[in-house]
Design a protein around this nucleic acid. Structure first.
Lengths: 141, 141
DNA sequence: TATACGAATGATAATCGTTCTTATTTGCAA
DNA sequence: TTGCAAATAAGAACGATTATCATTCGTATA
């Protein structure tokens, strides 16, 4: 377990809730977790954390660059480990599964459009909402 | 005023709140309005509407295809008149002004990416968050 | 035009995701 | 160890949105 160093280098004290949250993201099967998801999973793992703490930790991790926050439709935020690579998301409307993709052509055009309009891009989000083309949606919720 | 027909053809009774809301969107200087925006503007126009009604009407108009709903960051929805043309948005981080754009190349690539991953696009949202390149942001909030 | 009935409304309570407050506990440097 | 700032848990508070419900309104029909 080398996570305490992760936290240290991010300027964060190594505390139990923080370690647990980081653990969850590194070992969870699902890459994209909401605050509620994290909270529930910690509770059912026997951890005694407060929901407020989960929110605080998630926000700190986001600011520290450990996590990335996404605003999908539906008004709640989801987080994922920051692997350093930017990517966009395609969300299956059937099962909610999130697939990641990255397309240089799209990124390049965005840059071009923005500069053309007199803007400097700080951030962007591209979410595609779609259905699987297969008869049975292969993803499980 | 030919709006009652708009409502009729959308299967909605012609009522005062609905007419007023539609009016607002057609005559307001700002294309993108939140429920709160609509509510406040109606109140200051002397109209006596409830906030709940505003939310109801906005949702109905969205379902009827009269308005389009957008989820920008910040947790609140904004609506705009549906002109039939799809477009994406670039949001100025300084003043919150929203600029619209449409880029065939981006749309085409999205389609290609999605089909490549086995999806059929139902909807998508592309939001660019940016700063003006000019010294002084030319837009007013 | 009067009327009757279901749809629409306004007021307000409820809900949802998130943030704030505060008293208490913890990490960790001395 | 001990001390103290930083972090926590619990729950109140918050803003946006939705649900509830008694009352009013739009409109098809007589």
């Amino acid at each position: 377990m080398h996570q305490p160093e992760h936290l240290k280098s991010a300027g964060l004290k190594s505390t139990l809730p923080r370690l647990k949250v980081l653990d969850l993201f590194e070992n969870s099967k699902e890459r994209h977790l909401s605050a509620e998801d994290v909270y529930k999973q910690l509770l059912s793992s026997g951890e005694d954390v407060g929901l407020a703490t989960v929110y605080r930790v998630l926000t700190q991790f986001e600011q520290a660059g450990l996590l990335v926050r996404h605003h999908f439709e539906g008004g709640k935020s989801v987080f994922e480990l920051n692997k350093g690579d930017h990517h966009d998301h395609i969300v299956c409307l059937q099962c909610g599964h999130v697939e990641e993709f990255h397309d240089m052509a799209i990124e390049a055009r965005q840059e071009k459009v923005a500069t053309g309009l007199g803007f400097t891009i700080r951030d962007h989000s591209l979410h595609i909402y779609a259905d699987c083309t297969k008869k049975k949606c292969p993803h499980k919720r």
